[in-house]
Write a protein that binds this DNA or RNA. Structure first.
Lengths: 183, 183
DNA sequence: CCGTGCATGTAATTCGTTACATGATTCC
DNA sequence: GGAATCATGTAACGAATTACATGCACGG
């Protein structure tokens, strides 16, 4: 049982490598140049993470000598790596993630269609909608009861957070509609 | 020059202690029970952070013996602590923060009225609006150009992120209007 | 007397950040 | 020949997570 967690960065790397085997440098550029910029593109984060994945048997690197450039290693997933990626993607969105780790949920969902198929994506969205529908009202209640005694900027800051969750809830509905229309 | 950074958690603690001196336990409960739950309420995070602040001369603890409970330390800000808090709050929202560290911006803004006054809050919102107005279109462009080749769930995930920024932009306008009305 | 809440802490481990270091190639 | 880009790494440090440990007080 290789039940050790690989961390969020590790899973992000697995997801990207599933789509196409890449070098560490190519992965860094994805983090630097696309909206996946939540992750740092620093070599001190990426290369050790890639090494951990390889050491855990989840990826394997192939040394490319062909191009005239400096030796460059292209990583691809092993069967164990694919298993780990699927295990992670199959996790339903937890309450805790919905409340404080939205980034991780977005990342999981982004990979979902390709790796798990549309029906998994729909199930994920339905579960997410359920959780948000339960959470948003409790935040609104907090704001209604505690907001009056708060300074304006503090109240507005909380309001901004609540609006974020409400927007995400609205988004799940539109996303579900998009999957409906596809069929 | 005590120019060492105290970290996001450190600044959150300074802000809370400015409002009212508290024990570590009381601070933990704030993180556990209010929407400030982005921060962990684990003792392994809070107590070492409080100790760092005290060691840096930013806070001082007073041992309370009065209550029958176990000895309990109530921390309050020193003048240096207030200076550090104000220095942090005076930072304008950077592009990088707008893109990837929204939490920190929200936290700064939440404390702003009390510590820096309304005009600082308004300035902060104006700067934030400027940055968001510049950033959102570039994200929309990315989505328009790269979105077509992406799997549906990936495109929707990016869309969710963009919507978040758009919601925040809308919020800055309403927040500015709220300050206008107050005058 | 046992669980729950108040209250504070430490140790091991893991991970990210910052900064530094190296080396090849291409373009000007 | 020097800058920019491709490409990979390490070392020192800081900080969070998890898990454990302690101890008082109160209600049932």
């Amino acid at each position: 049982m290789t039940q050790r967690a690989v961390g969020l960065l590790g899973n992000a790397l697995l997801g990207l490598l599933y789509q196409n085997p890449s070098s560490g440098y190519a992965l860094r550029r994805v983090f630097a140049l696309t909206p996946m910029s939540v992750f740092s593109d620093s070599p001190g984060a990426i290369y050790p993470a890639l090494r951990r994945l390889a050491k855990g048997g989840l990826t394997r690197g192939r040394l490319e000598k062909s191009s005239g450039l400096r030796r460059r290693q292209v990583f691809h997933l092993t069967p164990a790596g694919i298993r780990e990626l699927k295990r992670w993607l199959a996790l339903p969105p937890s309450r805790d993630e919905v409340m404080r780790r939205t980034e991780e949920l977005s990342l999981r969902f982004a990979f979902m269609d390709q790796v798990m198929g549309k029906s998994a994506s729909v199930q994920f969205l339905q579960a997410l909608e359920r959780e948000l529908k339960a959470y948003v009202p409790s935040l609104r209640e907090y704001l209604a009861s505690a907001g009056n005694q708060m300074p304006l900027s503090a109240r507005l800051a909380v309001e901004s957070g609540v609006r974020g969750y409400e927007t995400r809830l609205q988004w799940t509905r539109e996303a579900l509609a998009a999957y409906e229309k596809k069929k």
